[in-house]
Amino acid sequence: MSQGDKDVLTEPGDERISAVPLPRPGRWVAAAVILVLLALFLYGAATNSAYQWTTYWQYLFDQRIAQAALVTIELTVIAMTIALVVGVASAVMRLSDNPVLSGVAWLYIWIFRGTPVYVQLVFWGLLTSIYQEVDLGIPFMVQFTSLSTESWLTPFAAAVIGLGLNQGAYTAEIIRAGVSSVDDGQREASVALGMSWSQTTGRIVFPQAMRVIIPPFGNEFIGMLKTTSLVIAVPFTGDLYTQSQQIAAVLYRPIPLLLVASTWYLAITTVLMVGQHYLEKRFSRGVAGGAARVKDSVTPTDAPAELPLRDGR
């Protein structure tokens, strides 16, 4: 309520309305039931010997587990980097006027989105037996060198390539959606100022597309963290899940080690969520409620509420 509204309010009295809140018994009952159920579950879990909490605490900070968590983070980061590079490239190709480029990008997305990632990982693992050597040179003419596939396509490499290329197909679509979400007027204003294609893309379109790209990309990043638990398909065994299962197999105690792995996944996810939050803030600069003042402009739909409004509140 601004000062100007005061005149209107003086008539029925100046004070703030303090109405009696509507009773909502249903909410209280529902909350109570859920809290009781939750307490029962926690009590049950703490006392149920099947969870084997002593084993849980014993292995939570086990060196092999911590090492495997690190490997999982490596897998995630490298795979997402590949996905980003491949995704940007195929999004640009998809958006290009050249039918060959956009067709190839479409084909890539079609195949890698349309088959299960598990199957793709198995395939990458088998690649060393399909192609035993890679020749470098000019096709049918000179051969500079010949590499045995096994020497470079280690299980780790096969895992990150497999995960990265699969993810790249999704990332391409996220980026394409982000770029398409930027108002054409932005590109036009930039071009009218004499900016080149790369300046327009890099300085004007991409920073605005980021606002749309980051939330789903962040989700995909967190998704990738968990998808790494499939790399046993390659087979690669260094990741958090596989390592915890290998320990469990020796101990014959699968449940506490599942809990150990879950705790680590949750912890890493939490860190990623914090990072995502700050990135989102960084790229929503200039997008506040005030955008609604532009008549019939594309109003940003997901402007974070915590941004300062234009009165500086």
């Binding site: 108002d183 007027g185 932005q186 036009e188 204003a189 930039s190 071009v191 009218a192 100022l193 004499g194 900016m195 080149s196 294609w197 004007i204 920073p207 605005q208 790229f283 600069r285 200039g286 997008v287 955008a291 532009v294 008549k295 019939d296 402009s297």
Partner: peptide, 26 residues
């Protein structure tokens, strides 16, 4: 060539109905 077209444009200012300011810049 796009480069020359851009060079022509930079000597011509344009103002749009819907402003088209870059929202991520001050």
């Amino acid at each position: 060539h796009p480069r020359h077209a851009a060079a022509q444009r930079r000597d011509i200012g344009m103002v749009f109905q819907r402003f088209n300011l870059f929202p991520h810049m001050t």
